[in-house]
Structure formats: C-alpha cells, structure tokens
Design a binder for these strands. Sequence first.
DNA 1: CAGGCAGTGATTGTATACGATCTGACTGCA
DNA 2: TGCAGTCAGATCGTATACAATCACTGCCTG
Lengths: 229, 229
Amino acid sequence: MSIKLEPKSATADEIADQLKEAIHKHRLQTGAKLREDEICDIFGVSRTIVRQALHALQHKGLVTIQRNKGAFVAKPTLKEAREVFEARSLIEPAMARAAALRATPEDIAYLEAHMKAEQDALDREEVGEALKLSGDFHVQIARIADQHLIETFLEQLVARSALVIALYWRRRTALCDSSAHRGLVDALRDGDADTAEEIMKGHLLDLLMQLDLRDAPSGPVSLKDALKK
Amino acid sequence: MSIKLEPKSATADEIADQLKEAIHKHRLQTGAKLREDEICDIFGVSRTIVRQALHALQHKGLVTIQRNKGAFVAKPTLKEAREVFEARSLIEPAMARAAALRATPEDIAYLEAHMKAEQDALDREEVGEALKLSGDFHVQIARIADQHLIETFLEQLVARSALVIALYWRRRTALCDSSAHRGLVDALRDGDADTAEEIMKGHLLDLLMQLDLRDAPSGPVSLKDALKK
DNA sequence: CAGGCAGTGATTGTATACGATCTGACTGCA
DNA sequence: TGCAGTCAGATCGTATACAATCACTGCCTG
C-alpha cells in the first residue's frame, strides 16, 4: 500500500491530507490497517506526528481507531451510509441555491476548469482521480455559497461518500454522469437559484440510486449473528 | 480557572468533556488560555493526554491552537457566529420534522424530564447549567430523529452557539424562554411534523434575534486597535 | 530618553524510551 | 491427536527528556 515516497519530515496535516486523498481515490481499501510504524517510515517522522494525523482522520470519520488494535480505514455501516446521503440531501440543495445568488464570473470560470479536469480524468479512465474531483466539485459549491462552516461539514460528507461508494456501489462499470454538474454550473451562471436547487436535489438522488443501500447487508454483520441458529 | 479536582489519571476523552462542559457553561471565557501544564496538574496526567484532549476540542471548533503559542478557547468571529445559526436553521427544522415522525413515548418522557431539569436550573438561577441543558435539548431532537451523523454535527453547532452567546448576547438579564421547547415536545407527542418544524424554525429565529450579529463588532478586537488614534 | 538587542525563563513541539496488551505459535500433557 | 497454557514478537499507549520557539525584561547605545 505504498502511497508516496516522501523521504523527509512531513507535518501531521500533510500526512493526514495524503492519507485522506488515498482513501478518497480508493487507493486504500475500506478496513485496511494503517500501522503507525509503517507510516512513520514512509514519511520519515516519529509516531507522535503520525498519531496526530490518524486522530485527525478519526475525527473526520475516515479512520476508526480501536484501542490496542490500531487504526483502520473506516467501513461505514448501511445506516451510516444512508445518513451520509440524507445529510447531503438536506444540506447541498440549500448550498446550490445560495451559491446561485453569490457566484461571481471567477467562480464560474473555476467550476468550468474543474469540470474539464473531471472530464479529462474520466477520459483517461483514472476512476479514483475522477471520483475525487467530483467530490471536490460539491465542496466548491459550499465555498461559493460562502458558508465555511458547512463547507467543513461537507468535506466530511464527501469523504465519507467515497467510502460508501467503495462499499455499496452497484455496478462497477457505470460512471458518474457529469451532465448534472454541467447543468448546475449553467444555473449558477444565470443566477437561477430554483433550478440550481432542483438540479442538486436530483443529482444526489441519482447518486443514491446507483448505490445499494437496501436493508439486506452486503455481508454478515458479525459472525456470531450469522451463525445464530 | 479551577475546573474540578480530579486527583488521579483521567482519559483524554474525560478531560475534553470536562473542558467542553466548562466552556459550554461559560465557566471558561472565550479567548482564555489553556496551558498544558496547568491542565496536567489538574487531572494528574502527562502532557500527551492533555494534548490529545486539546486537539480533539480544536477539531470540534471549541479551541484554537496557535503554533508555539498554545491553546485558547475559541472566539468565533461575526461571520462564524452567523454561519453557526445559518447551519442550525438549515438542519434543525428538518430534525424536528423527522423526530415528530419517530418519537416514542419514552422519548417524550425523556424530553419532559429534560425540560423540568432546565426549568429547575433557571429557578435556581444557574444560568450556565440552564444554557447547557437547553443546548442538549436540541441535540436530543436529532437523536430522536435517529440521525446520528447529524447529531454529531449538531453537537458542534450547539457548543459553538454557547461561544456565540457568550460573545454576542444582547441583554444579560433576558433568559431564554422555554415555551418553544414546551410547544415542540407537544408537537412531537402528537406526531405533528409540520408544527414541530415551524416551532423549531421560529425558535431559532428567536434565538438569533437576541443576538447582536450586526456588522459592528461588539467590542474592540485588540488593544492596539482600540487605542489607535 | 527612545529604540533596539540580547539574554533568560516559560511554554510548546517532537522524538524516544518504556510499559501494557494483543496475536500467534510452540510445546507438553491428557 | 487435541487442547490448553505459556512464551515471544509485534504493536500500541503513556510518560518523559530534549530541542525549538516565544515573551519579557533589562541593559546598552545613539
């Protein structure tokens, strides 16, 4: 699970960012163990720093730390997965509306460039990269809406969404269609808040449809339960 | 700023909880410095543990850590204060609606007891305690709505609200009127989602009205600025 | 007398050492 | 052969030691 060769001394934030990115791009699987010593070697720092990074990721919900066991990439349960998208459905349409009322030409230009990068990644079939950019797009909407606090929440939700997608994605081949992003940017440019809100609502619903979040768990929750009678 | 005399070894979570409670109850002022050694002495643990607690509170937005300077109780800016209540206005009415559809008799009984504790605290004029209980009430609504992820967000928002109230409260003597909580519980009992949502929306607006979040900063930001000219 | 500069004490940042706990394997006994 | 008990290695948790930085004071100089 080599991530990147940083020969010398990184900060806790840098390590957390790189781990976050690796998780977001599905280069680290859900449930993967993150041994402290190993990360120390990779980044050339002491365990003190690595632990800071892992704790930070725990607070963001990307990593689970079990006492005396270690840190693992989080595995959202079905309920947690649903809650992520319920929260997004609550928050993001409102952000799209607010963004439509505030977006400047610079913001639009930024989003256009962002979409182009997304498309490029898709063309190159770099699924992980495309996934990350697609998530960033949603965070940018909150930034344009000038809601920094909600932006931090949304960062968490988008990151967790990457975990949910890794676990509950229905068809591996289906690619996220980016026409919704296209339509959203158009609505923002026109300052059309109603349309922006509707597109975002529909977009999240589309995403949800591509996930398998029905009651049947994809695997037995615990062996004990599975073998009970 | 003595908080509590815990002679021996507490965990990082316990320390974070006690600091959080002290901040929530306004026993620690915004901007107050939190020296590591001092907290070590109070709780009888090493700096390692205390730092974990302080970092956790930083992630929750209650504490600001400045490199080589130390940890301080956060002082939300005007913009941050507005964002807290904008986020709450977005999230909480939806939680009230969802809670109305799910509340069990046990939930109602719990909320009744909670309101009684609130009233008692007010009667005893324990403003800090009342403030904390009032905040907890809002978190409980999210719990009843069975939205654990949003509940964690709301915990953050409520905690930050305590900081905002400390900084921007208009009239010290005015007490939060608890009739909104009363009405909300009644609506939940009746399963009246529309009313619950409306009451919550109005309640948050009332709260906002009691704050002074206009553009003029309530006090001088720094001594230097205050004495300039 | 004002301003700058260096020294000192206090405080935080990082690394490391040591102790606790878990995992897995090996061995001895039934 | 099967099971249990114990031992060793690996890994994590906490405390502590040392280095870096900051704030403050007092002195020195112009």
